[in-house]
């Protein structure tokens, strides 16, 4: 019970501290802080429409957050969710606009989502292969591969995948049947991402593969002596994470934008790291964590719109909240990881 209270204490402290600092920043910039914060809260969850927007923004964060949490749990520092998301979106666009019939029915959704997951997984596995075969640190390779993916998308939408009129750097619209079915504006990707969280939680905690991944994540050398291959399992973790991030790209494409263009992802791949850390790498905790970050992004838009706060100031406020919440969460994380020295070592 006490432990539970302590776990809750840090998010609350983070929220209070970020409100305090945000008020200060808004005052310093010459804006009325209370009105602005009210707009932020109302914009994040004050109406059904606000909730819809928050859920829409949370969905790619949930999927990419799961990708980061999964790979970090396996001791793989995957900074490449952004690139894997783009790789997934690119693969999904290719399949949807070049392979599938334009007049296909709703079944088109399935190959589009599968293509997204596979594209991301392949891109993740590439970093995994570099790590396993050549000893390239995945931190470096995944960061660099982000740029590769972004440039690949830029090339594709100005070249092979550009729309038929060739007017704008964007792809053709997806066939109608490939778009995710939606209820109101809530598309199928929302429940899909929630199911993904359950699947990842089950995979890590309950399956033999997840057990091996966790063992390697805790101590690769010990795992090697126990008969596990940190190289192979690390590649698997990167492929699985890439698949989740690629799925996020396909969902964003088929659920929201309908076309591929540059800047499709407003950075969820990087925010995903914050999402995963705030959740302390627990797959189920990624759900509320992604919801929080989605609400923040959505509320910031409302703050800009309704309280006439310039976007720069809203970004400052958003940044402060992210920094403080992750900072508090990391504080907890490091405390949780601090090992009690055993008698033998002391």
């Amino acid at each position: 019970m006490k432990e539970r209270l302590r776990v809750l204490a840090s998010p609350i402290a983070a929220a209070l501290a970020s409100i305090g600092i945000a008020v200060g920043v808004l005052l310093a910039l010459g804006h009325a802080p209370l009105g602005a914060l009210e707009a932020l809260v109302r914009g994040a969850g004050g109406s059904p429409a606000a909730w819809t927007g928050t859920l829409q923004k949370s969905t790619p964060l949930l999927l990419t957050g799961l990708a980061v949490a999964l790979s970090f749990r396996c001791g793989v520092w995957n900074i490449g969710a952004e690139g894997q998301l783009y790789a997934g979106a690119l693969a999904a666009t290719f399949v949807a606009t070049r392979w599938l019939p334009a007049d296909g029915g709703a079944w088109l959704v399935a190959p589009v989502l599968v293509a997204g997951a596979l594209g991301g997984a392949g891109f993740g596995a590439l970093a995994g292969w570099l790590r396993a075969a050549r000893g390239v640190s995945e931190v470096i390779s995944t960061i660099l591969l982000n740029f590769v993916a972004i440039q690949l998308v830029a090339y594709a939408i100005q070249g092979p995948l550009q729309e038929a009129p060739r007017a704008y750097p964007q792809s053709d619209p997806l066939p109608h049947g490939a778009m995710l079915p939606a209820l109101d504006r809530l598309h199928l990707g929302v429940p899909l991402a929630l199911i993904a969280a359950l699947v990842v939680a089950f995979l890590i905690d309950r399956t033999a593969v997840g057990f091996r991944l966790r063992a390697v994540g805790h101590a690769p050398e010990a795992a090697r002596f126990a008969g596990l291959s940190p190289e192979r399992l690390g590649t698997l973790a990167l492929a699985l994470a890439g698949g989740l991030a690629g799925l996020a790209g396909a969902v964003e494409l088929a659920g929201m934008t309908g076309r591929l263009y540059e800047g499709l992802s407003p950075g969820p791949g990087y925010t995903a790291i914050a999402v995963a850390l705030l959740a302390r790498l627990a797959p189920l905790a990624v759900i509320p964590s992604a919801l929080f970050f989605g609400a923040l992004a959505n509320g910031a838009l409302a703050m800009q719109r309704e309280a006439a706060i310039p976007s720069v100031a809203t970004q400052v406020v958003q940044g402060i909240v992210i920094l403080l919440s992750v900072g508090f969460a990391l504080g907890r994380l490091s405390l949780a990881r601090e090992r009690v020295p055993s008698e033998g070592e002391a």
Binding site: R212, A215, H218, A222, F225, A226, G227, L228
Partner: peptide, 28 residues
């Protein structure tokens, strides 16, 4: 410890199981 295949961060139960995590035994 590590050379003996003891994985810090995992429980006693998990450490007793870790070497059978790939052979599909009773625990897996």
């Amino acid at each position: 410890r590590e050379r003996g295949g003891l994985v810090p961060g995992m429980s006693v139960a998990e450490n007793l199981a870790v070497k059978s995590s790939y052979d599909g035994g009773r625990l897996f």
